[in-house]
Amino acid sequence: MPETHPTVLVLTALALEYAAVRPHIEDREELVHPDNAGARVERGRLSGTDWYLALAELGEGNSNAAALTTQIIGWLKPEAVLFVGVAGSLKADIGIGDVVVGTRVYGIHGGKQTENGFQVRPEAWPVSYALESAARSAVRDMDGVRAHFKPIASGDVVLADAESKIAQHLRENYNDAAAIEMEGAGTLRAAHLNGQLHALVLRGISDHADAAKHEADATGSQERAAAQAASVAVATLRKHRPRGGRDGSSDTEEGPQRVDGDGGASYGGDHIDLRGGPFHGPVIGKQLGHRP
């Protein structure tokens, strides 16, 4: 078992996505699963933070992503999981080079085929609100990045025809989805079944999911989109702090966090602090003293 550090697992599907994240990691070392199960990561520090980043290239597809994410989570015990990569845009106003931060991810292939047609049985996986909030804060300070916080469609298909049956299926049943990719649903399924993880999917737009996909890819759009997604992922982690500081203490032991002008944290007040957990819904409350 590797030495314990506050760790974020950063997952990619393609070599070019891996290459976009890798330069952000300092003092890298390669780790191999101790049971020789096949999992292999590079781990190193994210400068200026307490985070160690473990970077893995999984290959394509949701089934593959779910299985390997589960394996690596059980091995490294990360506090958070990010999938970082490229995707096709499903909206005319979301262009090549933009970044879509998933607010939820749809598994698009669930349903029932009947004599009256295909009846959709949607499956949607929420992301961590703590990470989503950190990403929203991070992109406000980033020049040259257009970020969209929208749902993402995820299925084992490369969409290169805007008039295809699958494209029509998306417009009719997942019309709020801003991008389509192939691994986010599997990754979020694994993270949520674990029950203790923050998880987020970030995708740089490399094409418009139409017949011009290959032309866009030939211009280097995938590399540029991956670099944009990686930069947003790193900026997000600079905002999102580990559950315990360098001394191992828990944030929740000291009360709710406030961010000072210099980026440091202070604590106080009388409200409930759920920042250390993977809670995804709104909570309104006030912590009161003991009453006999």
Rank of each mutant, 00 (worst) to 15 (best):
G245L: 01
L200S: 03
A199E: 07
L16I: 15
A209I: 00
A216S: 10
S164R: 03
F149W: 12
V145E: 06
V157E: 08
P151R: 04
A67P: 01
L193G: 05
R140H: 03
A178C: 10
L288K: 05
D35F: 12
L159E: 01
G261L: 03
L58F: 02
W75F: 00
G61K: 03
G144W: 08
A56E: 01
E215T: 10
A209C: 01
H198P: 00
H5A: 08
H148V: 11
L131D: 15
L159H: 02
L170P: 01
A230W: 01
A190K: 06
H192K: 13
G244E: 12
Q113I: 13
I96E: 13
L68W: 09
A178D: 02
A87K: 00
T49K: 05
G59S: 08
K150G: 03
N64D: 06
P122R: 13
A20T: 03
F149L: 04
R22Q: 15
N173F: 02
S47M: 11
G220N: 09
P122M: 04
G59K: 10
G111D: 11
T4C: 06
W125C: 04
Q196K: 12
R140A: 03
V99Q: 14
P242L: 04
D161M: 10
Y267H: 15
D156W: 09
D141H: 02
T49H: 10
G269F: 09
G268I: 10
A167C: 09
E123F: 12
H290I: 05
I166Y: 11
G102D: 13
I166M: 14
G61A: 05
G261A: 09
A265H: 08
A177D: 02
H198L: 02
H148Q: 04
R241H: 14
L197Q: 07
V81R: 00
G95M: 05
D35V: 09
D207G: 05
A153K: 00
I72K: 00
H33L: 03
P122E: 13
E163S: 10
A37T: 04
D247F: 09
A147D: 06
A37F: 05
K165M: 09
D270T: 15
A20Q: 05
R203C: 00
P282V: 14
S89C: 09
G48E: 05
G281T: 13
S154M: 04
V105W: 03
I152R: 00
A15T: 10
H24Y: 15
D27G: 08
V81E: 00
